[in-house]
Write a protein that binds this DNA or RNA. Structure first.
Lengths: 338, 338
DNA sequence: TCGATTCACTGATACGTTTCAGTGAAACGC
DNA sequence: GCGTTTCACTGAAACGTATCAGTGAATCGA
């Protein structure tokens, strides 16, 4: 069935013809450069009449700028990261950019492949929440493309800006809270990660645990609620389980809630749970999930501001540190003075 | 700071030069058309050596195809729709397409503007979960661009395919269940909608309520958890409140849970709640949310298959009907025979 | 009054591919 | 052995814009 032909769009040449100007003049006029007010108005008029709209593809080819910003998420299985991606998409749209949102799914190899594809796709900038901030390709990528990192700073890469979480402080907040509630042996559930031994956040956990003389036991949890639940089930089924679980994202904590429900364990009586992120759903659970809150709105605004500035050639190259806040709800039992 | 120059990419001309062929031959060879196996191999080799990668912008300008599919969501405040968007993004990536995900935020005017922008952006196809399926511009848009609708069919538009929810059945499932549990007066919470009086799903609610002799009371809930909670608070604060609330999405039901918690009401003793969608979190609440489940994986697969086929010129123009399933959990009280 | 500057605009080229209309040679049918 | 196909490839023309290097006229300063 021959689709009724795509209805030829008007080109800049037709507008030029209609106004008696050269295509170059029209191009300038529509962008408000180098032409008289009167001409601008005349061109606008003609463009509107012809229904002319500059072709973004041709514009991109000629100018080298696509108006698209790549957003490479660590793992979109994670609900908090979903919120972040949605927020970034909206904020970028408000700045007349399109967000190309991709999901590394926690896999460093995939992250690398997608980042390079995004560059080949000619995005004007890249916002990334790195799975593997130590990967060497970041340096090469960031030199030639404005890259803004969220979460962890990119090691050795000259980024266009960074919105870094003070994970040291976040971890301290969480672990001190647990210790003050009398928890001495703690299970730490962290998302599956590349085997970079020095991943910043993980380092802080070990360091803080040592400082606070806590006995921690790190378990790696695959992505997705089902997988997380399975990992948590294994942990909780053990009668000699720790008294508390510190989950490195609220989504992981949800898996613990699910596993606890399955096993007939109650929170916080049988197991205390602490999250990290503060997703809107965390307040709705019973009991509410005590967690470490990051200001998602502030993160979005900062990242977008940085990447847009860099894409426009106004480079600021700033590092913005995000400070966490403890959200106390009811998922951690008070064991009395430990 | 002059960013080290963007490191000129190799062009097709350089590959042509290296192989002693014409650019045209290289173009054909890289797409495996009209050239000998031997030449293809030779070109591949040279391209790899030069690190050549076809420029998507130039390709799009010449061929008229961008490889991008627009995804226009009704409201990304809704968690289920977030899952849907994430799923669509992943499935499209698996088919070597980029998803341009946009959020109409429940606003028909915004929906219209974004849909047109997506067309101007030259996407190869559009997947839309329409806010206003009756809007007249769909017809004009769908004629010239493959459009696949999810949820409600686009009225009067020649779409490239449709994945339609059997809302009639879904509503029947929910309302019959409530009636069988003895609920006669029911609050219906539906997302803010354009004032199309004949929105399909809403029509079914009225019709089914009539058939089942239920007394319903429709409230419109703005988007977002906070707004939904506020709307629910108002509803629940009334001592003469209905015995059950039927929410037209799980996200709205979450607002009812939040409001109930605030007011010290317990579910389902003080108020029964029924959802619609089945988001993963619904099973984690206390009590679990009884809801109507739609197979999100099937929806994603169907929509992507349809839009990709249409974008490739293989038009099937199919309408796929999704059937719902009741997920009984604990949020509806059994009032005994009504 | 004259050279310099600014202003408003033009012509041509570049961007990097795809694709159409060939083209010469080889293969084929009879 | 001759006309016809097929094959593998070429040359050139799009695709629709941005931008560089002018150009003639008007304005300016002294």
């Amino acid at each position: 069935m021959p689709r009724s032909q795509p209805r030829k769009r008007a080109t800049i040449r037709e507008v030029a013809q209609a106004t008696g100007l050269s295509p170059a003049a029209v191009s300038y006029a529509l962008r408000g450069m180098q032409v008289s007010e009167e001409t601008i108005e005349r061109v606008r008029q003609a463009a509107a009449e012809l229904g002319y709209e500059a072709d973004p593809i041709a514009r991109a080819l000629a100018s080298g700028r696509t108006g698209m910003i790549g957003v490479l998420c660590g793992s979109l299985e994670d609900l908090w990261q979903q919120s972040l991606a949605v927020g970034l998409g909206r904020a970028l749209r408000d700045k007349d950019r399109y967000a190309l949102i991709l999901d590394a799914a926690g896999d460093p190899a995939r992250e690398r492949a997608l980042a390079l594809q995004l560059r080949d796709q000619r995005v004007d900038g890249l916002i990334v929440q790195p799975v593997d901030p130590a990967a060497p390709f970041w340096a090469q990528l960031a030199d030639g493309l404005p890259v803004v990192a969220i979460g962890d700073a990119l090691l050795d890469a000259r980024t266009a800006g960074e919105v870094v979480f003070d994970n040291r402080n976040g971890v301290t907040l969480a672990l001190e809270y647990l210790r003050n509630k009398g928890h001495g042996r703690i299970a730490v559930l962290t998302p599956t990660r590349p085997s970079t031994p020095d991943r910043p956040a993980d380092v802080h956990v070990t360091a803080e645990a040592e400082r606070l003389k806590l006995d921690i036991e790190v378990t790696t949890a695959p992505h997705g609620l089902a997988a997380t639940t399975a990992a948590a089930r294994e942990l909780l089924a053990d009668d000699a389980r720790p008294s508390a679980a510190f989950c490195f994202s609220d989504s992981i904590a949800y898996g613990v809630y699910a596993a606890a429900a399955e096993l007939g364990l109650s929170i916080p009586e049988d197991i205390s749970v602490m999250g990290y992120d503060d997703h809107p759903m965390s307040g709705l659970l019973t009991p509410g999930l005590t967690t470490v809150n990051w200001d998602i709105g502030g993160i979005v605004r900062a990242a977008v501001r940085l990447v847009v500035a860099a894409a426009d050639g106004r480079n600021r190259r700033r590092r913005i540190i995000q400070e966490p806040e403890l959200r106390e709800r009811g998922s951690v039992a008070d064991l009395g003075l430990g």
